[in-house]
Design a protein around this nucleic acid. Sequence first.
DNA 1: TCAGACCCTCACAG
DNA 2: ACTGTGAGGGTCT
Length: 305
Amino acid sequence: MSSPTSDSPTQRLIRVHDYDLDATLASGQAFGWTRDKTGWIGTLGNRWVSLSASPGAIAVRSTSDSGDWAWLHHYLQTDVELQPILDTFPKDTAMSDSITACRGLRLLRQDPWECLASFVLSSTKQILQIQQICVLLRERFGRPVVVPEGEACRNSFPSAEAIAASSEAELRACKMGFRAPSLLQAARAVSEGRLVLEALQGQTLENARRSLCSLRGVGPKIANCVLLFAYDFPGAFPVDVWVLRALRELYFPRRRPSTARLERFVMTHFGPNAGYAQQYLFHFIRQREGRVAKSDSSSVTQPTT
DNA sequence: TCAGACCCTCACAG
DNA sequence: ACTGTGAGGGTCT
């Protein structure tokens, strides 16, 4: 299969402040980026994009030909000032340790459908496995994007329509197991207009979450991930096993709080940007447990002694 | 509230 | 190297 190519990608330098691109793209909120020697390669919509961090800036290469880069600023949220958000975090040792460890960690603003589909696939899966499933989905149901000469061909993330037109067996062949019927139903709901993803932003957090949770395979955790990573719902607070571990260890070391108690605690303790705080906690505890993928130089195979 | 089931893959013992 | 075992960013019943 041949893919369209363009010989001269456009380039751009985005000035940023307090922005750790590597931590952000590796923090498990988006699953479509792959590392190469200099940075990250992925697609946004039907555009091929390469990003790499440099001091005070993000270097971009893309096949987008218009001079308008608003789509990329929006995705990366580069116009968001980080410090005012950090200032709203609770002043406790857990959060200040997290801030120290994760300085520059950001929330992206992803495409709602891609985000929903990815997180439907995430249940009891490791990040690496979710990435692998997404690669297969792109290969089999996505469409080739224009790629600079010399770069490997790459597909866009498949639309809800493309997934809806597939069969459960085809989806299972992408190694997603029991998540296949859930993804298929979500794709049908979206493509048939029973779930209007664009309408969620106008709703309250509770109603938007209820809409998402009506989908099979989408519970509170996944719904909160979608609302936090693809929309402007800064109060959405996904609690997964890692965050649960962090909360218990850092805030309730002696007792074992019930789910309801914990829920009340996160709603009141973390403030208006609770979701942002959650991402810092998540990244902090994973980093401490050594679960964050290091950049290629340090992840080369260690010699066995 | 509470396990157990659900698919499948990788890491990690032996 | 090769095979067996367990658990992995949940959700549903």
